[in-house]
């Protein structure tokens, strides 16, 4: 993995995803000070700041459904989740099993891995009707 952590003085190239322009940003970090060059607008600076100090992603995956019409329940985090803990998140989600019925928006895990973020169901899945 490309390490997002920056040592005392470090350069990093980033592609801005704040808008479709896809500007290449040159970020230079010295101590707590981050300078960003190359963006066409102000949003690039904010993007680079976030990407370097605290990169986060909305996580989506599925977990095992029990007794439902479908075998898997799609889920997501309600807020962007720390990128460096993606792996922990995925491993944790393999342990989660949900019983039908479940409704789109139901909280599946509260405060996942202590990050203060919830995991919610993104689809409604009814109980499987026994075969006639």
């Amino acid at each position: 993995m490309k390490s997002p952590e920056i040592q005392s003085r470090e350069y990093r190239q980033l592609i801005c995803t704040a808008c479709p322009m896809g500007c290449t940003l040159e970020a230079e970090k010295e101590g707590d000070l981050i300078q960003v060059k190359g963006g066409r607008c102000q949003r690039g600076g904010k993007y680079a700041q976030d990407e370097i100090t605290n990169p986060r992603r909305v996580m989506t995956t599925t977990c095992v459904m029990e007794g439902g019409e479908l075998r898997r329940l799609p889920i997501r985090t309600t807020q962007p989740f720390p990128k460096n803990r993606m792996d922990d998140f995925m491993t944790f989600m393999t342990t989660v099993r949900v019983s039908a019925p479940v409704f789109c928006g139901d909280i599946i895990v509260s405060n996942v891995l202590g990050e203060g973020i919830d995991v919610i169901a993104t689809r409604t899945i009814r109980k499987k009707q026994p075969a006639p």
Binding site: M1, T62, C63, R72, D87, T91, T94
Partner: peptide
């Protein structure tokens, strides 16, 4: 199946 023990992508790189 997707629920099976995952190999962490971090350990693979």
């Amino acid at each position: 199946e997707t629920r099976e023990e995952r190999e962490s992508y971090a350990t693979r790189h």
